[in-house]
Structures are given as C-alpha cells and as structure tokens.
Computed example of a mutant assay.
Amino acid sequence: MPFPAENRQIVTKTQVGRMSSGGFEDHFDAIVEKLRLISRKHSGEKGLVHTASYDRANQLHNHFKDNSQCHSRSGDYLSLQISYWQQSNDDMFFSPAAMDGVDLPRDKCRWQALVKVPYPNLADPRTRFLTDERDRDDLYMERTSQQIQQSVGRGVREAGDECIYYVLDESFSDVRRNVDLPDWFEKAII
C-alpha cells in the first residue's frame, strides 16, 4: 500500500455489536443511529456502506431513502447503479457487492462503513469442504480478511486521496485476532 495510513484510517470505536447469527437484527437500531451520525459528520460527502447481503442493504436503505441509493438485485448493474449514485445528490450507497472491483477516487468516496464482516458463505460447497473436510478455518478467516482489505481500498485510489473507513461489526476483532494482517493495514487502524 503506497498511501499513508492517515489517508485511509480504519476506525473501530464505531463498533456496535456482532452482526452474525441474528446480530444485525438485534443491533439494527444502533446501526441506523451510527450510520446517521457518520453521514451527518460527512454531510455532502459520498459514503459507501458494505452490508454483506442485499436484504441488509435494502433494510438500511429504507431508513435513509432521502439521502441514499441501494444496489438492487435486479441484474449485475453495479457500475451503472454507482454511476447514478455519483451523479445524484445522495450521500450514501448501500451494497453487498462493492468490496472489490470498484474505483472511487477523490470526491467519489470520502468514507465507508463496514456493517457486516463478509464471511464466506458456508453453504458454498468449496467453503464447506475447506472448513469441514480439510479443517481449514484459517483459509475461511483469510478469505474474510482479504475481502475487508480490498474494501478499504475502494476510496483511496491515488496519492493524496483520503477515505475514512468505519467498522460497525465487532466480529472485525475476530478477524484481527485470527489472521496475520499486513503491516500497512494494521497501521491504519485507530
């Protein structure tokens, strides 16, 4: 990572609880309030919110309809939907699928929020094989870590770029504890 840590800060004091196994529903009001505070702090700035599922994206979007757009399930039109968002006055974009392959330099994205740690789907046969048959939970956590690392880079794309990354899911601490994260990533965590 060639960009300074202070330009890509990862804020963990915004965690509101564990989001797996019903945690999203249990903490929904706290998530909405935290996102409301973050969006007010960054009023007029674009923010990408990573949700890990379309249902979560839609539920959150329903609370911020006056200032957000949502990646819908209707086709794989993520780049088109992001383009509409960028051309709008809406600050937030909710998506479960924008953790990689998305380029949002400069004012296209000044903040991001990780609502839910993106664990691989255990219903996927390959993931199930690695975790159950091969007893490779380390690969499961490593894939999770890689997704998070990729997502941090969506808004810091060039020298001088800045984008702050807020973590709402306490499960982020599990990833840090179980994966040897790269130094460049650890240095950005505050």
Rank of each mutant, 00 (worst) to 15 (best):
Q81K: 15
Q81A: 01
Q81M: 13
I82W: 08
I82F: 08
S83V: 00
S83D: 07
Y84G: 02
Y84T: 01
W85I: 02
Q86N: 14
S88V: 10
S88Y: 00
S88D: 03
N89Q: 13
D90F: 07
D91C: 02
D91A: 01
M92S: 12
F93M: 01
F94S: 01
F94D: 01
S95E: 01
S95D: 07
S95I: 02
P96C: 09
M99Y: 09
D100A: 14
D100F: 05
G101F: 09
D103N: 13
D103G: 07
D103L: 00
L104G: 04
L104Y: 01
P105M: 09
R106P: 04
R106G: 00
D107S: 09
D107Q: 14
D107V: 11
K108H: 06
C109F: 10
C109T: 07
R110V: 00
R110A: 04
R110Y: 03
R110M: 05
W111G: 02
W111L: 04
W111V: 03
Q112P: 11
Q112F: 11
A113F: 10
A113N: 04
A113D: 03
L114N: 14
L114W: 15
V115S: 09
V115N: 06
V115Y: 07
V115C: 12
K116H: 02
K116F: 08
V117H: 09
V117A: 12
V117N: 15
V117Q: 10
P118M: 13
P120D: 14
A123L: 15
A123Y: 10
D124F: 01
D124M: 03
P125W: 10
R126L: 05
T127H: 03
T127A: 10
T127W: 15
L130P: 03
T131C: 00
D132S: 13
D132I: 08
D135M: 14
R136T: 15
D137G: 06
D137M: 01
D138G: 07
D138M: 12
Y140G: 02
Y140M: 09
